[in-house]
Structures are given as C-alpha cells and as structure tokens.
Design a protein around this nucleic acid. Structure first.
Length: 480
RNA sequence: GGCGGCAUAGCCAAGUGGUAAGGCAGAGGACUGCAAAUCCUUUAUUCAUCGGUUCAAAUCCGAUUGCCGCCUCCA
C-alpha cells in the first residue's frame, strides 16, 4: 500500500487516485528567466522519481508541469540580455530541458506555458468576479481572501494569525491586505488585452487555470517546493475551489530545499550553484544519487565534499553491477546448484520487496538506497566467494539478480553504468588496452615484474587504471 | 511578533512505542609479487538537555537550548 505525506492534512495517507489506475499530477515548474540551479533540479528529480515509482506500480501517469514565461522578471531579464521576453523564455526553457537530460529526468508529458493559456486565465478571473470571490479596481483584479472560507488550510494558519504578523505593504486598492492579484494592470510594458484593460495574469492564477484545464477540477497530486506552500499553493487552492466549487487537489506534496551551509539556496539571495557548474565537477548520476540520499521532504545541505562522498557510495553500487555483468560473460561449467547458489537465489526477490516497502512509505529514497547497498553487498559476497563458479544451473539466478538490480535502479533514475568512456574512442581504445593487458599478463606469468609494472604505471599516466580481479584484469578510465 | 519543522556515531543518513538500516571516512584481517578493487571483522548500552506517561520511548506528552523554513518573488 502506497502512503504519501499530504501537506494539506499533515499526515501520511493511503494514496487513492480519483480514477482507478490513473494518476494526474501537476508540479510547479519555474520562471524561465535564467539557468536552473541545484534546488530546481532537486525538485525535478524528486518528482521524476515519484512519477517513475507510480508508473512502476502500474499507474498510468499524466505528469504536467509549467513554464512561467510572462511576468515582470522575464521582462527585466530580457532587457538585460537584449532579447525579446519570448526569446528569453524560449532560451531558458530549452536550457532547462537540456539540463534535465543530464540528470536522467524524464520530461513531463506536457509543459504548459502561460503565454499560451491567457484565454483560460481570463475566463477564470471573469468567473471569480461573477461569483463574488474577486473584484476589479483600477485595472487590477484581486481575489478576496475573506470570501473563501477555507483560506489558510494548506499552510495551517488563520486569516487572523496572518494579519497579525503581516509584512505586506499596504495597498489602498485591496479590501484586505492579504488579497492577491489575479490580473495585473501593465503600466509601461505591452500586456494582453482583457475585460479590465491591458495586463498580465497574477502570480498564482496560471497554475490553477492550466492544471485544471488539463487535469480536471479535481486531480491527484500537486507538487512543488516547500517554499511554495504559502502563498502560492494556498492561493491556488482558494481561487481554484472558489471557481469550481470542488476540491482542487487531493494530495499536496512538497520537497525540501537545497541549502548552502544551512541557508536556503535561492536566486534572490545569490547563494546558489547552477546545475551547469556542478555538472563540470560531478556527473548527473552522482548528483542525482546525492540528492536522493536524503528524504525528499527534508532540507539537504549541498557541498562538494558531500557530493564526493555520495559519488564513492554510488560507485560501490555500480561496481557490484559491473561485477555481475562481468561474471555473466565467463565460460559456463556444468554443475548442479550448490547451497551457496540456493541461498543467493532468495536475495533478489527479498531486496525487491524491501525496496518497494521503502518507496511505498512516502517515497523513502534514502531507505531504498540502503536496500540497494545491502543487495550489492550480497552480490559481492556471493560472487567473490571461493566456492563460486558460473554454471548452467546458476546462470539464470545471476541474470535475475542483474535484472532486479537494474529494475530497482531505474525507479530511482540511476543507470549503474560506468560513465567513463565519454571522451574515448572506444572502438580503438578498448582493443588496444586489452592488448596491453594481455602483454602484461604474459609478463606476469614469466615473473617479469619490471615489464608488468611499466605497463601498469604508463597506463596510469594516461589515466587508465588497472584492476586485477580473480576473473582476470579489468581497467577503468580515471576522469578526475 | 505569528505559524511550522528539525536536532541520531568523526561525517552523511534511515528509523514515529518493543530494544539503533545503510553509506562515507578510519582501524585490523583475507586476497595480491606489490597495488587497486572486493570480501570478513570492527566504530552509538545510545538517539540535544531536563522532566513525565508506559511493562517498554530515539519514537508519545511538557519544558529548555540550538538551528532552519514560511509569513515578500522563490523548486
């Protein structure tokens, strides 16, 4: 049974989709005004894992996200880069889509753009005015928080509490300082025509209009960073439920922030690492693995030291998988199953079960990774045992183990492949190195250590590291 | 000021009533001509502090301390 932590209720709940077998989820994307940073990637990776797991469980998932391509920030940044706002948005949404590939994040089924949904937004604002939830003043349209009884239910505070600590600048046009804009009048820039004059959509209306248009008035999962709970998601609930008269979202999921020395990474603070600069130091797989070692709801502290530790940890899993793959290429002997084989045969299914129960507990990737390490340990122990040899009998057991290992890794979006051949022409390099290894083996058998070491040392200078295993020599290209 | 979260070994991190997963780093051993990789063993009588509830608490309750988030754009 899948349980998810729902911000709306503050508890873990059993997950039941509106429509059996199908999951409709919407994840707040970003304002495409600059290159993405690691915090954005954590969100993208997190919901990618959630999506992958739901699909693994057999759900048909409709995963929607958005690009906010209209607002003041876009206009400001466009001027800085001397581009049109549309070109700026196109540039950075394309960059985002390129970046997520590096992290093995599957693209959403659809990225909705504000600029393509203005009609929908205007229709929604008009209806809210008609129903008495919103009012127009001087070309701006505001949502009246007092008109919506449930205002504050997501962030767990009442209107009175919010007003007591309000830091919002007084705006004479608003009935209540907490009222928020659904439509904003444009002063100097070019906006979109509307019944209230030229303007732009307010900050929260886009997600409501676009998600409901695609997924229906009530859908299953709405995700985003914890920093969106208030006011963004609170306001989405208010305007959406006021509009439709129905419950907007059943499960609200929120991922924790990525911090630097304990402080939230954010563009406005200027303390952030872009995905692109971190990718120069570590692979997308390593960064992805690092981010998944912590439960998604908790904040995670980012540093290159932690990342290096994570990379070593990931390497252990990759090594186990490599060992498995290597063994499967050995010559097969004819022999019956041993006790050792029979014991190991139970492992894959066992680990699969453990992994699923971890993931079904609010997508606990940290625990799931622990299971993978247990699994890797079992594989290593088995294959390194002196009694082990590949036989016709245990071949399928090993194949099954590899299959399960990769299947579970795939849920986390991990590939367990050595990503070291990037800059090598494998067609030439691999046979050449094999040749050198052969020569070295010969030298070793003749106890010509001088030659054997010369080959090893000279290859090491070329960043090629030799590893002798019980099953013959292996090598690795050392990228650092 | 209001609301909320967190505090687990040298470091990272699971664990929400039944007696502390996993990883990184470290130590010892096996294997190796020497290495590397791998394997085995080992590193928290204890979960910020102080009280309370319970047969039993890291887990529940209260207080204290510290850190963080939100209340303003933010993944």
């Amino acid at each position: 049974m899948l349980k998810v932590y729902n911000t709306l209720t503050g508890q873990k709940e059993e997950f039941k989709p509106v429509e059996p077998g199908k999951v409709k989820m919407y994840v707040c994307g970003l304002t495409v005004q600059n290159y993405s940073h690691i915090g954005h990637m954590r969100s993208a990776i997190n919901y990618d894992v959630i999506r992958r797991y739901l699909e693994y469980l057999g759900y048909q998932v409709d995963y929607i996200s958005n690009f906010t391509d209209i607002n003041e920030k876009i206009v400001k940044r466009a001027k800085e880069e001397e581009l049109s706002p549309a070109d700026l948005a196109a540039k950075y949404s394309a960059a985002f889509l390129t970046d997520i590939q590096q992290f093995n994040v599957k693209p959403a089924d659809k990225y909705l753009k504000v600029s393509e949904n203005i009609d929908q937004i205007i229709e929604m604002v008009s209806t809210l005015i008609k129903k008495g939830f919103a009012y127009e003043k001087n070309g701006n349209v505001y949502f009246s928080v007092e008109s919506f009884a449930g205002y504050g239910k997501l962030s767990g505070r009442t209107l009175a509490e919010m007003q007591a600590g309000a830091r919002i600048a007084v705006n004479q046009d608003k009935h209540n300082p907490l009222d928020f804009a659904l439509w904003k009048k444009v002063e100097s820039e070019k906006g979109w025509p509307s019944p209230w004059g030229e303007g732009w959509p307010g900050w929260h209306i886009e997600c409501s209009a676009m998600s409901m248009k695609r997924l229906g008035a009530t859908f299953d999962i709405h995700g985003g960073g914890v920093d969106l709970i208030f006011p963004h998601h609170e306001n989405e609930i208010a305007q959406s439920e006021a509009y439709s008269g129905r419950k907007f979202v059943n499960y609200w999921l929120h991922n924790g922030t990525v911090n630097l020395s304990g402080e939230k990474m954010s563009k406005s603070q200027g303390n952030f690492f872009t995905s692109r600069e971190v990718l120069k130091e570590f692979s997308g797989q390593e960064i992805r693995y690092f981010l998944l070692t912590r439960h998604y709801h908790s904040p995670i502290d980012f540093s290159y030291e932690r990342l290096a530790e994570a990379a070593n940890s990931l390497q252990r899993l990759v090594n186990a998988r490599q060992l498995l793959a290597k063994i499967l290429e050995l010559d097969i002997e004819k022999a019956p199953l041993t006790n050792l084989d029979n014991e190991f045969a139970k492992i894959p299914a066992l680990k699969q079960t453990d992994f699923k129960s971890a993931m079904s507990d609010d997508f606990n990737t940290a625990e799931a990774i622990g299971v993978l390490h247990d699994f890797a340990g079992e594989i290593n122990k088995y294959l390194n045992s002196n009694e082990f040899k590949l036989t016709e009998s245990n071949f399928t057991i090993l194949e099954k183990a590899e299959e399960v290992m990769l299947e579970l890794a795939e849920i986390l979006g991990l590939k367990f492949e050595v990503e070291n051949a990037v800059n090598i022409d494998e067609r030439l390099t691999t046979p050449l190195i094999s040749l050198l290894l052969e020569v070295r083996e010969t030298a070793r058998s003749e106890k010509n250590w001088e030659l054997a070491d010369l080959i090893r040392d000279r290859l090491k200078e070329l960043k090629i590291e030799i590893k002798d295993t019980p099953h013959g020599p292996d090598w690795e290209f050392d990228i650092e």
